[in-house]
Amino acid sequence: MDDESLTTPYFPTWCPGCGNFSLWSAFKNACIKEHWDNSNTVLVAGIGCHGHILNFIKLTSFETLHGRPIPVATGIKTVNPLLNVFVFTGDGDCLGEGGNHFLHACRRNEDLTVIIHNNGVYALTTGQTSPTSPKGYKSKSTPAGNTDAPLNPLALAITTGATLVAREYAGNIENLTSLIIKANNHKGLAIIEVLQPCITFNKRFTHSFFRENCCRLDPDFNTANKQKAYTKSLEFGIKKMPLGIFYEV
């Protein structure tokens, strides 16, 4: 298996520099390493820029409705537990339109890998505030600044019952590849938040911003401690955006 066998006739339509490119590479690398092919793997996506990924990886997939990839993936995995089932979703898809499904998939600890493409903005609809946009964030839908506090997907996942909760920055392709493999091997729900820039509509979360402010979790961090994982997940600020596995049981 090689990159060629995963290639479709379509080249990504994402903006040049979009975080989705490196995520795409990281995922394809994982496929090659692990021999994920059409005999064992299904991809499920929602609607948003992230969802287009299905057209660029030659693996059987389901492009669902906005917000609904998690329940569709749940149905697939429930009736065929032998399949590797990956959910690609965005901050708006997973935490806005599909927020209820996210909570309940965590509660049920479904045996899925959910990759949240978090760019903090509704990009495909040309730049409105999303559930993870910071307070004060100016966008087409919040010209005077976002008045609402952002959701923290990791804190939510830890408290509601997901059993592998991690964050990575889209630019760290190798780390992301091994994290995706680990998540797939995990029995239970694995949530990976991928911080990625939207180079067109989010002028705040840029590649250089993430490079400057992301830090790695201490290698000795106790990932089996739910309270500590929760507290750690609340850290999010300048020079303080931890990457790595927060929680794994």
Partner: peptide
């Protein structure tokens, strides 16, 4: 949506 996923899977 679950039922659609299950049906898609056979």
């Amino acid at each position: 949506n679950m039922a659609i996923g299950a049906s898609f899977a056979g």
